[in-house]
Design a binder for these strands. Structure first.
Lengths: 358, 358
DNA sequence: GGGGCGCTTGACATCGATGTCACGTGGTGG
DNA sequence: CCACCACGTGACATCGATGTCAAGCGCCCC
């Protein structure tokens, strides 16, 4: 704006101005600058104006860290978010929702990708603790989160999302995995299916187990015996899912419907169905929305999660704690939405039988 | 681990231990604790051991902010990332790549979503400046980034990604928008198409203009006059793209191929093609990979960007600057990859003509 | 006219760490 | 036997801000 700042000379790092510099320029004490910058009352209007002008001229930006250090509460106005990967679409949407709430309150968010590595979880927490974040939103990876108790004891709140933690008692926000899996199966049974395959993620992942259990529970409730051969776990990418799906569909007594319980697995299953030309004969319901899953033919019926709501609720819980809420930890369950698009409504052989029997 | 830490009593916030506490417990001076914690030499082994034990017992975590404040360089080991939205798949992958490089060097990343709001860009930069980030990776939104010069002058480096900044001269890492658009058009022309429609994002977005210009340049080079009626800009979501595409395809002299230059626009175009049952007759090449775009029928031929490489290069450039590189700013252009999947290889009417005429 | 009040203001200690420097100790060499 | 050095160690100032507190000043009221 002024004098030489636009000259093409080799610029050398100018020292960053501090409150002292502003105070000197404005001819006031440093504390008065502090008052003006923080909008405290009891500063004469013309003094405030002089200070503001000096601050603007020097392009002064307060150093939050210095302030946080001195200030009583020591808040850094920063929270930490631990997710599987910031590149994962589900996690990214959760992240965005949390960021929205945080920004509104002047908070910044550190996001860290764990890639399902238990060691990374510990490292990430330690790194954030050294940065004195005011709170954590964590997707638990390790089997045991009890090592986090010390942070809670020191007054740093924590909210777990997506998976239940173990060893600590904190607010959690999770998807209704079990019930939603039941709903998916119920939907397929209603279309007349009896032989329904389950394609699941790694068994060590809690949500994968919950979805499988929901699947088994609904089958049991409906008096439809589960065939162990059709219950597959430990799939984690699309190629293995494609291979397994092809194998299942070429069994002597193949499934007439598939409940695929994870994103990439769904992609693999669809590809297998397409390869075998069976996509219009075998029903499919997928857990987790598939990006542009409504461009595929047939369009994919899904159990859509609500990452936006999960993120928002988690952030709201965290800030409630930061605002002093000391009530007992809450377990929030976020419902899913069954999005009927076609693939899940392909009728099964039981359709006629179901109509005939009662 | 020890004594009462597992008792179910109502825990009250225990004060966070400082170096002084560790020093007292270990019976040494605070400076010695500092030495041990930072691995400085010249500490007697048994003293170091005593300090480490005390630190572990108190679960001491150093306060990085206090250290940064005192330390000469004042580095916070934190960088800021400004993107359209952390939930945008492209930005999320860039973010992940940057995070990978940053984590390796003990850096944490603040990511901020701008949602293409110029005011948000300024706000975000200011918020990060107050937190004294060591560097910025920015997706420019405003028309003019010259207001950022002061940060550069103060020794905070910056790398711009995805779009070229204006008003400042910094390292940039961008996709080869112009050339890739030409390649897409060339590909369609090679299939015999002459009437090729262009579907673009908001004209005020630089990459949208570059892609359109590439499209026009290639048409001109190939002696194929561009029809203004087929050059559409200012699309930003799938519904408007669907509407426009339907309109174009029902023109008296409709295009035989479409080059859609943004993600959501592509989704809209595909939907329109499917609604009109034209997806196997009208060729389509899309800029930017469509998630599971290989499940659609026909599978979508795309110009795939390389967000991972963009993020990695941007981070490497930023850290090179932080390591003292004072060379002139570099403009890195990241190539795209034409992924042939089917939709772009639907032959056009010129195919025969092209073969007939020499 | 003086005590007291309210509004402004700045000196100073402090937050938790690190840089500087000086001190104590034991060994080495002249 | 003493000067000197290297090593280990801690006292103290300091980074950039804010909380505390007291002082200066004008004004009101008795």
């Amino acid at each position: 704006m002024t004098s030489m700042s636009s000259a093409p000379t080799p610029r050398q790092a100018s020292r960053r101005p501090t409150m002292r510099d502003v105070a000197r320029l404005a001819g006031v004490g440093i504390k008065t600058v502090s008052r003006v910058v923080n909008g405290e009352p009891d500063v004469a209007p013309e003094t405030a104006e002089r200070v503001r002008k000096a601050a603007a001229e020097l392009q002064y930006e307060p150093n939050m860290h210095a302030g946080n250090l001195r200030r009583g509460d020591g808040r850094t106005h920063t929270i930490g978010l631990l997710v599987s990967s910031v590149a994962n679409p589900f996690a990214a949407q959760v992240h965005r929702a949390i960021e929205r709430v945080a920004t509104e309150r002047g908070y910044a968010v550190f996001a860290t990708s764990l890639e399902d590595d238990p060691a990374a979880e510990r490292r990430a927490i330690a790194a954030l603790a050294r940065r004195r974040v005011d709170g954590y939103v964590v997707t638990p990876v390790r089997d045991d989160q009890s090592y986090l108790q010390v942070h809670l004891d020191r007054g740093t709140p924590m909210v777990c999302i997506d998976r239940e933690p173990s060893g600590i008692d904190v607010d959690t926000v999770v998807t209704a995995n079990h019930d939603s899996a039941r709903e998916a199966v119920r939907h397929l049974i209603a279309q007349g299916h009896r032989r329904i395959a389950f394609l699941g993620d790694l068994e060590r992942i809690q949500t994968a187990r919950l979805r499988r259990d929901g699947y088994l529970a609904e089958l049991a409730d409906q008096g439809t015996p589960a065939d162990p051969a059709l219950t597959v776990l430990d799939l984690h990418d699309d190629t293995s899912a494609t291979a397994i799906t092809r194998r299942l569909l070429t069994l002597p007594d193949p499934p007439t419907a598939i409940f695929s319980s994870q994103n990439l697995v769904t992609v693999g299953a669809i590809r297998a169905l397409q390869q075998l030309g069976a996509e219009h004969d075998v029903a499919l319901v997928a857990f987790d929305d598939v990006e542009s899953g409504d461009l595929v033919s047939p369009r994919v019926t899904v159990i859509a999660q609500d990452p936006d709501r999960i993120g928002r609720l988690a952030a709201e819980r965290l800030f409630a704690r930061l605002d002093g809420d000391v009530g007992p930890p809450r377990q929030l369950v976020v419902p899913t939405r069954l999005v009927v698009r076609g693939s899940g409504e392909i009728p099964g052989p039981g359709r006629a039988a179901a109509a005939a029997s009662p």
